[in-house]
């Protein structure tokens, strides 16, 4: 649990960070809260020569409304997500999810940006971002661009980020007033990654589903957006038979690994159970 040697850099602006990453090349890694990268370095599974710590960049720490969107700076910690009245009011699924990430100590340090940018399929926020249709603001040497969360994840730890780019902010369209939501996560203990988890945001009109979006955590190499499952539910009253069909559609797109959480078949089935429970929860909250 002793990392190899590395140089430490602490830029104070995004421009400086981007310039450093460009200069240092592929042997440099950006460091956010450190709860994924540092353990990997301690195990010597990651051995970057340079760490570019983003903690000194004030502009990356903010939560603000921007028209119909809310923009969250990448270095906002999970604790700050929990403490935000704006987020609790407008996008309450973020609070529900953050509360299920690790423990308070980790949430004081772990960041939303690090959680979504690392490409770890075990992280909770990516599936929620797929569910919400969020967009990621990224900056590199060649300037800024925006990437849809639903197009960001390409494989385990493999994302649409180009070398030298850093994720600076997450932009989320505020869901409709009265929407229902739920994040249901099965885990073995506090601090564990999900055996399977499901995020649901839906709206109801007169007892039928008007819109629905579903994200799944840790049941494939990437977080999953279960579009077909959600489409099955739109127009339904969430009756048992339809939910069963949607669950089957969601299970069909999973491809989990067998690990200490259980065999692949179990984790697929748990994705289904979590989805059914998240749907019920979301429905009970929708108005």
């Amino acid at each position: 649990m002793i990392p190899g040697s590395f140089a430490y850099h602490r830029p104070s602006s995004v421009q400086e960070a981007v310039a450093l990453l460009a200069d240092l090349g592929t042997e440099a890694r950006a460091l956010a809260g450190g709860h994924s990268l540092i353990p990997m370095m301690k195990l010597r599974l990651a051995a970057p020569d340079n760490l570019v710590d983003l903690a000194g960049i004030k502009e990356l720490k903010s939560i603000r409304a921007d028209g119909g969107d809310i923009v969250i700076g990448a270095m906002t910690t999970q604790h700050e997500v929990l403490a935000s009245d704006l987020l609790t009011q407008k996008i309450p699924i973020l609070r529900e999810t953050a509360l299920q990430i690790a423990d308070p100590q980790v949430r004081y340090a772990g960041t939303l940006g690090g959680n979504v940018a690392n490409g770890d399929p075990g992280n909770d926020m990516p599936a929620v971002m797929l569910c919400l249709g969020a967009a990621y603001q990224v900056t590199g040497k060649s300037g800024e661009r925006r990437i849809a969360a639903r197009e960001f994840y390409q494989g385990a730890y493999f994302t649409a980020l180009e070398p030298g780019e850093i994720l600076t902010a997450i932009r989320i369209r505020v869901p409709a007033t009265g929407h229902g939501y739920g994040y249901e996560k099965l885990k073995r203990k506090i601090g564990d990654y999900a055996t399977a988890a499901a995020a649901v945001v839906l709206t109801m009109t007169g007892g039928t589903v008007a819109s629905c979006s579903i994200g799944l955590t840790n049941v494939a190499e990437t977080p999953l957006w279960a579009e077909a499952a959600a489409n099955i539910l739109v127009g339904s009253s969430l009756n048992a038979a339809t939910v069963k069909r949607a669950v089957a559609a969601a299970e069909a797109i999973t491809a989990p690994a067998t690990d200490s959480r259980g065999p692949a078949i179990y984790r697929t089935k748990m994705a289904g159970v979590m989805l059914a429970r998240a749907l019920a929860h979301a429905r009970s909250r929708a108005s």
Binding site: T195, R261, G262, Y266, K269, M270
Partner: peptide
């Protein structure tokens, strides 16, 4: 643990 207990239920046809 969870998956083993679930597997017992699965083998008993409870799902």
């Amino acid at each position: 643990d969870q998956w083993r207990t679930w597997t017992v239920a699965e083998n008993l046809g409870l799902h």
